[in-house]
Design a protein around this nucleic acid. Structure first.
Lengths: 110, 110
DNA sequence: TTTATTTATCGTTTTATTGCAATTAATTAA
DNA sequence: TTAATTAATTGCAATAAAACGATAAATAAA
């Protein structure tokens, strides 16, 4: 079908999956790494840096923005993007809860 | 096109994306949470617990196994699954490097 | 006002993913 | 050996995602 049955999972499970999914593409990973490294970045810089077409980068930026992980700031004809620090921290909390689960025993399996 | 251009990214970026993608579906999040909670689990238990068809669960298990995050152990007609502790730890290292990047300055943007 | 620059949006094509019914494979129980 | 149980595989339909050309929108410069 190609359609996730979100309604049978907890909100937390869906939230983890939604955050993870946005990191599930190397272009978005690359964009975020750039924003961390450069502090802020114009859309055009990312196009040059990453090597995808401008509409493609724009679309990836839109998804990151939709989840609140980045902010865009219009400066003339350009748009300057940067990490949304507060939301990034909140996301980290959610993901850590999942990734840092403790392993209950010592032997591996069955 | 619908095809990720993996070759234009670093190995690290692709690795992060590959791990993130497997967490990008709530069924797989749910499976992993169960394996953490129950220590180990039969495929059938997961089918009952999560509420997807058996082939669907089996497919999600396959993906988790392919990345090495879980192990399967045949016991009679059943298969017992559990977290692969070593690979889980290695995955956490990769993801932490990405998620725990430092924010360079204090003000937000541009 | 006209032109150039930059980014967003639209529409389309291609590929990937999700989900399941049907079937197969493997093992155990009768 | 035959029937039952459990999980994997196959094949398919529906939906989502990735990529980009063309175009629109918005602003700045000439």
């Amino acid at each position: 079908m190609g359609h996730t049955k979100s309604e049978i999972y907890t909100d937390k499970q869906n939230q983890i999956a939604i955050f993870a999914k946005v990191f599930g593409h190397p272009a978005r990973v690359s964009i975020l790494q750039h924003l961390f490294k450069m502090d802020s970045c114009f859309c055009g810089d990312l196009v040059d840096e990453i090597g995808l077409a401008q509409p493609t980068i724009s679309q990836h930026l839109k998804e990151l923005k939709y989840l609140g992980l980045i902010k865009g700031n219009v400066e003339g004809t350009s748009v300057c993007y940067c990490i949304d620090r507060e939301n990034w921290t909140a996301m980290k909390e959610v993901m850590s809860d999942f990734l840092d689960q403790d392993l209950p025993s010592n032997q591996d399996c069955c």
